[in-house]
Design a protein around this nucleic acid. Structure first.
Lengths: 192, 192
DNA sequence: ATCCTTTTGGGACATTTGTCCCTTTTTTAG
DNA sequence: CTAAAAAAGGGACAAATGTCCCAAAAGGAT
Protein backbone atom coordinates (compact mmCIF):
# COMPACT_ATOMS: atom_id res chain seq x y z
CA UNK A 1 0.00 0.00 0.00
CA UNK A 2 1.41 3.33 -1.02
CA UNK A 3 1.50 6.38 1.22
CA UNK A 4 1.17 4.15 4.26
CA UNK A 5 3.69 6.11 6.32
CA UNK A 6 2.05 9.42 5.52
CA UNK A 7 -1.40 8.14 6.45
CA UNK A 8 -0.12 6.79 9.71
CA UNK A 9 1.39 10.16 10.50
CA UNK A 10 -1.85 11.96 9.75
CA UNK A 11 -4.14 9.69 11.70
CA UNK A 12 -2.00 9.07 14.77
CA UNK A 13 -3.05 5.99 16.71
CA UNK A 14 -6.22 5.44 14.70
CA UNK A 15 -6.38 5.03 10.97
CA UNK A 16 -7.84 7.18 8.27
CA UNK A 17 -11.33 6.52 6.96
CA UNK A 18 -11.05 4.36 3.89
CA UNK A 19 -12.90 6.92 1.76
CA UNK A 20 -10.38 9.54 2.78
CA UNK A 21 -7.45 7.27 1.99
CA UNK A 22 -8.83 6.54 -1.45
CA UNK A 23 -9.48 10.20 -2.12
CA UNK A 24 -5.97 11.16 -1.02
CA UNK A 25 -4.45 8.42 -3.15
CA UNK A 26 -6.15 9.91 -6.18
CA UNK A 27 -4.94 13.39 -5.38
CA UNK A 28 -1.40 12.67 -4.33
CA UNK A 29 1.45 13.24 -6.75
CA UNK A 30 4.86 11.63 -6.33
CA UNK A 31 7.94 13.34 -7.75
CA UNK A 32 11.65 12.60 -7.93
CA UNK A 33 14.18 15.38 -7.47
CA UNK A 34 17.93 15.72 -7.74
CA UNK A 35 20.20 16.88 -4.96
CA UNK A 36 20.41 20.62 -4.35
CA UNK A 37 17.25 21.30 -6.26
CA UNK A 38 15.37 24.41 -5.14
CA UNK A 39 11.68 23.64 -4.88
CA UNK A 40 10.48 26.94 -3.46
CA UNK A 41 11.74 30.48 -3.92
CA UNK A 42 10.81 33.83 -2.42
CA UNK A 43 7.94 35.31 -4.38
CA UNK A 44 6.48 31.96 -5.39
CA UNK A 45 3.14 30.88 -3.97
CA UNK A 46 3.56 27.32 -2.79
CA UNK A 47 0.75 25.43 -4.43
CA UNK A 48 1.49 22.08 -2.88
CA UNK A 49 1.98 20.64 0.60
CA UNK A 50 4.78 18.09 0.69
CA UNK A 51 5.67 14.91 2.47
CA UNK A 52 9.27 13.71 2.24
CA UNK A 53 9.06 10.05 1.39
CA UNK A 54 12.80 9.87 0.87
CA UNK A 55 15.48 12.50 1.30
CA UNK A 56 15.76 15.74 3.22
CA UNK A 57 15.44 19.48 2.78
CA UNK A 58 16.38 22.81 4.25
CA UNK A 59 14.41 26.04 4.50
CA UNK A 60 16.54 29.16 4.43
CA UNK A 61 16.78 32.85 3.69
CA UNK A 62 19.71 34.93 2.54
CA UNK A 63 21.27 37.39 4.96
CA UNK A 64 24.16 39.35 3.52
CA UNK A 65 24.97 36.85 0.78
CA UNK A 66 24.87 33.94 3.23
CA UNK A 67 22.31 31.19 3.53
CA UNK A 68 20.67 31.13 6.94
CA UNK A 69 18.75 27.88 7.41
CA UNK A 70 15.80 28.11 9.76
CA UNK A 71 14.40 24.60 9.34
CA UNK A 72 15.53 21.12 8.37
CA UNK A 73 13.16 18.41 7.20
CA UNK A 74 13.98 14.73 7.14
CA UNK A 75 12.54 11.57 5.73
CA UNK A 76 8.91 11.09 6.79
CA UNK A 77 8.46 14.74 7.65
CA UNK A 78 5.50 16.74 6.48
CA UNK A 79 6.92 19.83 4.81
CA UNK A 80 4.55 22.76 4.47
CA UNK A 81 5.39 26.45 4.48
CA UNK A 82 2.37 26.95 6.70
CA UNK A 83 1.79 30.62 6.29
CA UNK A 84 2.33 31.02 2.57
CA UNK A 85 0.60 27.75 1.72
CA UNK A 86 -2.59 28.23 3.71
CA UNK A 87 -2.94 31.90 2.85
CA UNK A 88 -1.72 31.33 -0.70
CA UNK A 89 0.63 34.24 -0.50
CA UNK A 90 4.19 34.51 -1.86
CA UNK A 91 6.85 32.72 0.14
CA UNK A 92 9.65 34.72 1.69
CA UNK A 93 11.99 31.77 1.92
CA UNK A 94 13.77 29.12 -0.06
CA UNK A 95 13.42 25.36 0.26
CA UNK A 96 16.31 23.31 -1.09
CA UNK A 97 16.72 19.55 -1.17
CA UNK A 98 19.83 18.28 0.56
CA UNK A 99 19.98 14.98 -1.34
CA UNK A 100 18.14 13.13 -4.09
CA UNK A 101 14.60 13.01 -2.78
CA UNK A 102 11.15 11.60 -3.37
CA UNK A 103 8.38 14.04 -2.54
CA UNK A 104 4.73 13.23 -2.25
CA UNK A 105 2.40 16.19 -2.44
CA UNK A 106 -1.13 17.49 -2.60
CA UNK A 107 -2.36 20.75 -4.09
CA UNK A 108 -3.92 23.60 -2.15
CA UNK A 109 -7.26 23.14 -3.91
CA UNK A 110 -7.30 19.46 -3.07
CA UNK A 111 -6.58 20.24 0.56
CA UNK A 112 -9.57 22.59 0.60
CA UNK A 113 -11.74 19.88 -0.90
CA UNK A 114 -10.60 17.43 1.75
CA UNK A 115 -11.22 19.91 4.56
CA UNK A 116 -14.77 20.46 3.33
CA UNK A 117 -15.60 16.85 2.59
CA UNK A 118 -13.95 15.19 5.58
CA UNK A 119 -14.50 17.17 8.80
CA UNK A 120 -12.03 15.05 10.76
CA UNK A 121 -9.27 16.26 8.44
CA UNK A 122 -9.39 19.57 10.29
CA UNK A 123 -7.96 17.71 13.26
CA UNK A 124 -5.14 16.33 11.14
CA UNK A 125 -4.21 19.76 9.90
CA UNK A 126 -4.39 21.12 13.42
CA UNK A 127 -2.09 18.35 14.59
CA UNK A 128 0.46 19.24 11.92
CA UNK A 129 0.39 22.87 12.96
CA UNK A 130 0.71 21.99 16.62
CA UNK A 131 3.76 19.90 15.89
CA UNK A 132 5.35 22.78 14.01
CA UNK A 133 4.51 25.12 16.83
CA UNK A 134 5.93 22.80 19.45
CA UNK A 135 9.18 22.43 17.55
CA UNK A 136 9.39 26.18 17.03
CA UNK A 137 8.96 26.89 20.72
CA UNK A 138 11.57 24.33 21.58
CA UNK A 139 13.89 25.98 19.11
CA UNK A 140 13.25 29.45 20.55
CA UNK A 141 14.04 28.17 24.03
CA UNK A 142 17.24 26.59 22.76
CA UNK A 143 18.33 30.01 21.54
CA UNK A 144 17.18 31.92 24.58
CA UNK A 145 18.14 29.58 27.40
CA UNK A 146 21.09 27.52 26.23
CA UNK A 147 24.70 28.20 25.37
CA UNK A 148 25.81 27.46 21.81
CA UNK A 149 27.48 24.31 23.09
CA UNK A 150 24.31 23.04 24.79
CA UNK A 151 22.28 24.01 21.74
CA UNK A 152 24.64 22.04 19.52
CA UNK A 153 24.61 18.98 21.77
CA UNK A 154 20.81 18.97 21.87
CA UNK A 155 20.61 19.19 18.11
CA UNK A 156 23.12 16.39 17.86
CA UNK A 157 21.02 14.24 20.17
CA UNK A 158 17.61 15.06 18.70
CA UNK A 159 18.47 15.22 15.07
CA UNK A 160 21.72 13.43 14.26
CA UNK A 161 20.61 12.83 10.67
CA UNK A 162 21.16 16.51 9.89
CA UNK A 163 24.87 16.20 10.46
CA UNK A 164 25.25 13.72 7.64
CA UNK A 165 23.32 15.88 5.23
CA UNK A 166 23.98 19.56 5.84
CA UNK A 167 27.31 21.36 5.67
CA UNK A 168 29.10 22.58 8.77
CA UNK A 169 28.50 26.08 7.49
CA UNK A 170 24.73 25.48 7.34
CA UNK A 171 24.54 23.90 10.76
CA UNK A 172 26.49 26.77 12.28
CA UNK A 173 24.16 29.30 10.71
CA UNK A 174 21.16 27.25 11.85
CA UNK A 175 22.52 27.50 15.40
CA UNK A 176 23.17 31.20 14.99
CA UNK A 177 26.94 30.91 15.43
CA UNK A 178 29.98 31.15 13.18
CA UNK A 179 31.61 28.15 11.55
CA UNK A 180 34.65 28.81 13.69
CA UNK A 181 32.68 28.56 16.89
CA UNK A 182 31.01 25.35 15.76
CA UNK A 183 34.40 23.88 14.95
CA UNK A 184 35.70 24.86 18.36
CA UNK A 185 32.71 23.22 20.04
CA UNK A 186 33.14 20.08 17.99
CA UNK A 187 36.81 19.66 18.78
CA UNK A 188 36.11 20.46 22.44
CA UNK A 189 33.28 17.94 22.78
CA UNK A 190 34.74 15.15 20.66
CA UNK A 191 35.24 12.27 23.04
CA UNK A 192 37.80 9.65 22.05
CA UNK B 1 -21.37 45.04 22.34
CA UNK B 2 -19.02 42.96 24.42
CA UNK B 3 -16.19 40.89 22.99
CA UNK B 4 -16.27 42.98 19.85
CA UNK B 5 -12.50 43.16 19.50
CA UNK B 6 -12.10 39.41 19.97
CA UNK B 7 -14.74 38.62 17.36
CA UNK B 8 -13.14 40.95 14.89
CA UNK B 9 -9.82 39.22 15.43
CA UNK B 10 -11.35 35.80 14.87
CA UNK B 11 -13.28 36.62 11.76
CA UNK B 12 -10.77 38.83 9.99
CA UNK B 13 -12.34 41.02 7.32
CA UNK B 14 -15.73 39.35 7.50
CA UNK B 15 -17.78 39.01 10.63
CA UNK B 16 -18.81 36.01 12.65
CA UNK B 17 -22.16 34.37 12.07
CA UNK B 18 -24.64 35.79 14.52
CA UNK B 19 -25.41 32.33 15.95
CA UNK B 20 -21.73 31.83 16.64
CA UNK B 21 -21.41 35.21 18.33
CA UNK B 22 -24.35 34.45 20.57
CA UNK B 23 -23.02 31.03 21.42
CA UNK B 24 -19.58 32.45 22.24
CA UNK B 25 -21.09 35.19 24.38
CA UNK B 26 -22.78 32.52 26.47
CA UNK B 27 -19.59 30.53 26.87
CA UNK B 28 -17.12 33.31 27.48
CA UNK B 29 -15.96 34.09 31.00
CA UNK B 30 -14.37 37.41 31.98
CA UNK B 31 -11.95 37.55 34.89
CA UNK B 32 -9.93 40.23 36.66
CA UNK B 33 -6.42 39.51 37.85
CA UNK B 34 -3.78 41.32 39.87
CA UNK B 35 -0.30 42.12 38.67
CA UNK B 36 2.26 39.31 38.81
CA UNK B 37 -0.39 36.64 39.13
CA UNK B 38 0.61 33.26 37.77
CA UNK B 39 -2.21 31.82 35.71
CA UNK B 40 -0.50 28.67 34.43
CA UNK B 41 2.16 26.46 35.98
CA UNK B 42 4.13 23.47 34.76
CA UNK B 43 2.12 20.34 35.40
CA UNK B 44 -1.25 22.05 35.05
CA UNK B 45 -3.49 21.23 32.11
CA UNK B 46 -4.69 24.54 30.71
CA UNK B 47 -8.45 24.20 30.56
CA UNK B 48 -9.13 27.58 29.04
CA UNK B 49 -8.01 29.55 25.99
CA UNK B 50 -7.52 33.23 26.82
CA UNK B 51 -7.89 36.58 25.16
CA UNK B 52 -6.24 39.57 26.82
CA UNK B 53 -8.85 42.27 26.91
CA UNK B 54 -6.65 44.45 29.06
CA UNK B 55 -3.13 43.92 30.35
CA UNK B 56 -0.21 41.76 29.29
CA UNK B 57 1.50 38.49 30.11
CA UNK B 58 4.73 36.58 29.78
CA UNK B 59 5.32 32.89 29.16
CA UNK B 60 8.53 31.59 30.69
CA UNK B 61 10.45 28.62 32.02
CA UNK B 62 13.10 28.43 34.70
CA UNK B 63 16.66 27.73 33.67
CA UNK B 64 19.10 27.58 36.59
CA UNK B 65 16.96 29.63 38.96
CA UNK B 66 16.36 32.28 36.33
CA UNK B 67 13.19 33.10 34.44
CA UNK B 68 13.61 32.74 30.71
CA UNK B 69 10.67 34.33 28.90
CA UNK B 70 9.89 32.82 25.52
CA UNK B 71 6.74 34.81 24.69
CA UNK B 72 5.06 38.11 25.51
CA UNK B 73 1.37 38.76 25.02
CA UNK B 74 -0.21 42.19 24.89
CA UNK B 75 -3.64 43.69 24.96
CA UNK B 76 -5.90 42.17 22.29
CA UNK B 77 -3.70 39.11 21.89
CA UNK B 78 -5.13 35.62 21.86
CA UNK B 79 -3.17 33.69 24.46
CA UNK B 80 -3.28 29.92 24.11
CA UNK B 81 -0.59 27.42 25.08
CA UNK B 82 -1.35 25.64 21.81
CA UNK B 83 0.17 22.29 22.48
CA UNK B 84 -0.95 21.68 26.04
CA UNK B 85 -4.38 23.21 25.49
CA UNK B 86 -5.36 21.33 22.35
CA UNK B 87 -3.91 18.03 23.50
CA UNK B 88 -5.06 18.62 27.08
CA UNK B 89 -1.68 17.63 28.45
CA UNK B 90 0.27 19.25 31.32
CA UNK B 91 1.97 22.52 30.52
CA UNK B 92 5.74 22.73 30.77
CA UNK B 93 5.76 26.49 31.19
CA UNK B 94 4.53 29.34 33.33
CA UNK B 95 2.33 32.21 32.31
CA UNK B 96 2.50 35.31 34.49
CA UNK B 97 0.60 38.56 34.16
CA UNK B 98 2.78 41.65 33.87
CA UNK B 99 0.13 44.07 35.09
CA UNK B 100 -3.44 44.11 36.36
CA UNK B 101 -5.32 42.38 33.56
CA UNK B 102 -8.73 41.46 32.27
CA UNK B 103 -8.86 38.05 30.65
CA UNK B 104 -11.68 36.67 28.59
CA UNK B 105 -11.65 32.92 28.13
CA UNK B 106 -13.41 29.82 26.85
CA UNK B 107 -13.07 26.26 28.09
CA UNK B 108 -11.62 23.37 26.14
CA UNK B 109 -14.95 21.57 26.04
CA UNK B 110 -16.70 24.64 24.72
CA UNK B 111 -14.08 25.00 22.00
CA UNK B 112 -14.76 21.41 20.96
CA UNK B 113 -18.46 22.10 20.84
CA UNK B 114 -17.86 25.16 18.67
CA UNK B 115 -15.59 23.25 16.31
CA UNK B 116 -18.25 20.57 15.83
CA UNK B 117 -21.21 22.90 15.53
CA UNK B 118 -19.65 25.67 13.43
CA UNK B 119 -17.43 24.26 10.67
CA UNK B 120 -16.04 27.68 9.76
CA UNK B 121 -14.53 27.91 13.25
CA UNK B 122 -11.87 25.46 12.10
CA UNK B 123 -10.61 28.24 9.87
CA UNK B 124 -10.47 30.63 12.82
CA UNK B 125 -8.43 28.19 14.86
CA UNK B 126 -6.15 27.54 11.91
CA UNK B 127 -5.64 31.26 11.54
CA UNK B 128 -4.63 31.58 15.18
CA UNK B 129 -2.12 28.77 14.80
CA UNK B 130 -0.71 30.24 11.62
CA UNK B 131 -0.17 33.55 13.34
CA UNK B 132 1.68 31.85 16.17
CA UNK B 133 3.76 29.91 13.68
CA UNK B 134 4.59 33.00 11.68
CA UNK B 135 5.73 34.86 14.77
CA UNK B 136 7.76 31.89 15.92
CA UNK B 137 9.57 31.62 12.61
CA UNK B 138 10.27 35.32 12.66
CA UNK B 139 11.68 34.94 16.14
CA UNK B 140 13.88 32.00 15.12
CA UNK B 141 15.28 34.02 12.25
CA UNK B 142 15.98 36.91 14.59
CA UNK B 143 18.10 34.60 16.70
CA UNK B 144 19.80 32.87 13.80
CA UNK B 145 20.42 35.75 11.44
CA UNK B 146 20.74 38.91 13.49
CA UNK B 147 23.17 40.29 16.02
CA UNK B 148 21.86 40.96 19.52
CA UNK B 149 21.77 44.66 18.68
CA UNK B 150 19.70 44.13 15.53
CA UNK B 151 17.46 41.72 17.41
CA UNK B 152 16.92 44.32 20.11
CA UNK B 153 16.19 47.10 17.65
CA UNK B 154 13.67 44.96 15.80
CA UNK B 155 11.90 44.07 19.04
CA UNK B 156 11.90 47.74 19.97
CA UNK B 157 10.32 48.62 16.63
CA UNK B 158 7.78 45.77 16.47
CA UNK B 159 6.79 45.58 20.08
CA UNK B 160 7.60 48.77 22.00
CA UNK B 161 4.85 48.05 24.53
CA UNK B 162 6.96 45.28 26.05
CA UNK B 163 9.57 47.72 27.23
CA UNK B 164 7.12 49.51 29.44
CA UNK B 165 5.92 46.27 31.01
CA UNK B 166 8.75 43.79 31.38
CA UNK B 167 11.97 44.22 33.34
CA UNK B 168 15.31 44.74 31.65
CA UNK B 169 16.31 41.36 33.05
CA UNK B 170 13.34 39.67 31.34
CA UNK B 171 13.87 41.37 28.02
CA UNK B 172 17.54 40.42 28.03
CA UNK B 173 16.67 36.79 28.75
CA UNK B 174 14.01 36.91 26.03
CA UNK B 175 16.69 38.04 23.59
CA UNK B 176 19.08 35.38 24.84
CA UNK B 177 21.66 37.84 26.15
CA UNK B 178 22.81 39.04 29.57
CA UNK B 179 21.47 42.11 31.28
CA UNK B 180 24.90 43.68 30.91
CA UNK B 181 24.88 43.24 27.16
CA UNK B 182 21.40 44.69 26.87
CA UNK B 183 22.48 47.69 28.93
CA UNK B 184 25.49 48.19 26.70
CA UNK B 185 23.31 48.06 23.59
CA UNK B 186 20.86 50.51 25.08
CA UNK B 187 23.47 53.08 26.03
CA UNK B 188 25.14 52.60 22.63
CA UNK B 189 21.91 53.08 20.64
CA UNK B 190 20.33 55.81 22.74
CA UNK B 191 20.15 58.79 20.45
CA UNK B 192 19.92 62.18 22.10
C1' DA C 1 42.38 8.73 -12.68
C1' DT C 2 42.97 13.85 -12.75
C1' DC C 3 41.94 18.52 -12.25
C1' DC C 4 39.17 21.97 -10.25
C1' DT C 5 36.08 23.58 -6.86
C1' DT C 6 34.18 23.45 -2.42
C1' DT C 7 34.39 22.35 2.28
C1' DT C 8 36.67 21.81 6.49
C1' DG C 9 39.51 22.74 10.58
C1' DG C 10 42.37 25.61 12.92
C1' DG C 11 45.91 29.74 14.08
C1' DA C 12 46.32 34.81 15.30
C1' DC C 13 44.24 38.62 16.65
C1' DA C 14 40.33 41.96 17.43
C1' DT C 15 35.83 42.42 19.24
C1' DT C 16 32.01 41.18 21.84
C1' DT C 17 29.88 39.15 25.65
C1' DG C 18 29.59 37.41 30.38
C1' DT C 19 30.53 37.40 35.45
C1' DC C 20 31.07 39.68 39.58
C1' DC C 21 30.70 43.51 41.69
C1' DC C 22 28.93 48.09 43.61
C1' DT C 23 26.03 52.37 43.66
C1' DT C 24 21.91 54.70 42.42
C1' DT C 25 17.18 54.62 41.35
C1' DT C 26 12.69 52.71 41.46
C1' DT C 27 9.15 49.90 43.37
C1' DT C 28 6.68 47.60 47.03
C1' DA C 29 4.74 46.87 51.59
C1' DG C 30 3.57 48.38 56.02
C1' DC D 1 5.52 58.71 54.33
C1' DT D 2 9.19 55.59 55.38
C1' DA D 3 11.90 51.44 55.42
C1' DA D 4 13.09 47.49 52.92
C1' DA D 5 13.54 45.13 48.71
C1' DA D 6 14.10 44.87 43.88
C1' DA D 7 15.68 46.60 39.55
C1' DA D 8 18.83 49.25 36.75
C1' DG D 9 23.19 50.88 35.02
C1' DG D 10 27.88 50.56 34.67
C1' DG D 11 33.27 49.45 35.85
C1' DA D 12 36.99 45.87 35.71
C1' DC D 13 38.43 41.82 34.25
C1' DA D 14 37.88 37.04 32.28
C1' DA D 15 35.93 34.21 28.80
C1' DA D 16 33.78 33.52 24.37
C1' DT D 17 33.02 34.51 19.82
C1' DG D 18 33.95 36.52 15.27
C1' DT D 19 36.93 37.81 11.24
C1' DC D 20 40.48 36.87 8.26
C1' DC D 21 43.42 33.85 6.96
C1' DC D 22 45.59 29.41 5.03
C1' DA D 23 46.52 24.51 4.21
C1' DA D 24 44.57 20.02 4.04
C1' DA D 25 40.72 17.14 2.76
C1' DA D 26 36.68 15.94 0.32
C1' DG D 27 33.61 16.07 -3.49
C1' DG D 28 32.27 16.71 -8.61
C1' DA D 29 33.02 16.79 -13.41
C1' DT D 30 35.31 15.26 -17.38
Amino acid sequence: MENKELFRLLAGKNSLRLELELKLNEMIKREYYAKSQIILKPGQIPNRAWFIEKGSAMGFVFKEEKKVPFWFWNENDIMVPLNSFFNQIPSETYIELLEPSVLVSISFDDVQEILLGFPESNDYVRKIMQDYQQMSEKRILEFAAYTPEEHYLHLMRDCPAIFRKASVESIAAYLGISRKTLNRIRSRTRRF
